[in-house]
């Protein structure tokens, strides 16, 4: 014997499920619409390749403006030393995306000062070795880490010829929206990717350099400042022997 069908119950369920579906789908639609309205609506293409030229003759000895600016832009200054950590060890464990390096030519004794960071290789060893593909190169030449798929194996840090990467050794309390981070993932300079995606034309280190030693821009655009500077001055890649075709170049090393 079957029970009589409760029509009201059916109607209620139909309305409820429709409302639930709308609640679930609407934010996606809405967000999609917002995303399309922003300047980051188009996919990254290889029509551009971002890079830098660093004029070491302009880089001032003892200046660390680019380092502080990077720390601020990417929230590295928000990280605090864990309680109980030794100063010396912590200094080797805290992340750094850019640093000052001072070199002496073994033959001539000439001293050069320069900033070192991820060199944004066209063929990055860190991307080759990453087991999950978390370390990746965008079509526009920026090499960065997908923090959702990084498992924290640090193989990319073993592979990087430039000591450019950092591992987050500690719990992270504060982080900027533009550069989220969490314990146990690897990160490095991403040429201020948040600025790229929001229509910015400079990097934090470039803006901070009073000497104008850092020129950033599109290496594929012959009229960009970086291309013009590269055409004008002789420049080198660091570890050019590895044939990685770096996006960051240096003069006078």
């Amino acid at each position: 014997m079957s029970e009589p069908i409760d029509k009201q119950r059916r109607a209620f369920l139909a309305t409820a499920s429709g409302a639930a579906a709308a609640t679930a789908v609407a934010p996606g639609v809405f967000l999609h619409a917002v995303a399309q309205a922003a300047p980051r609506d188009s996919a990254v293409t290889d029509a551009v390749r971002y890079g830098m030229l660093i004029d070491t003759t302009k880089c001032a000895d003892g200046c660390s403006d680019c380092v502080s600016a990077c720390d601020k832009e990417n929230g590295l200054d928000m990280l605090v030393k864990p309680e109980g950590a030794s100063d010396a060890l912590w200094d080797m464990q805290r992340p750094r995306w850019i640093r000052q390096v001072k070199l002496k030519n073994n033959l001539t004794g000439r001293v050069t000062t320069l900033p070192m960071m991820c060199q944004h290789c066209e063929k990055p060893p860190c991307v080759d070795v990453c087991p999950t593909g978390a370390s990746f190169r965008r079509a526009d030449g920026i090499v960065m880490v997908d923090r959702h798929t990084c498992i924290g194996c640090r193989y990319c840090m073993m592979a990087c010829p430039y000591n450019a990467r950092s591992f987050i050794h500690e719990n992270v309390q504060l982080k900027p929206t533009a550069a989220p981070r969490g314990k146990g993932c690897v990160e490095s300079c991403n040429l201020c990717v948040q600025r790229r995606d929001n229509g910015g034309t400079t990097t934090a280190c470039q803006d901070a350099c009073k000497q104008g030693a850092i020129v950033f821009g599109d290496l594929k655009d012959a009229n960009s400042a970086v291309s013009q500077a590269l055409a004008k001055y002789p420049s080198v890649q660091i570890r050019a022997d590895l044939k990685l075709n770096t996006g960051v170049r240096y003069t006078d090393v």
């Binding site: 080759d128 070795v129 990453c130 999950t132 593909g133 978390a134 498992i151 194996c153």
Partner: peptide, 22 residues
């Protein structure tokens, strides 16, 4: 010893075949 041991499932499902680790 991984930084994110709980993401082992990622390592088992997302591969970069140029990596000898994968």
């Amino acid at each position: 010893d991984l930084g994110q041991p709980t993401r082992l499932i990622v390592a088992m499902t997302t591969y970069n075949f140029k990596s000898i680790f994968a």
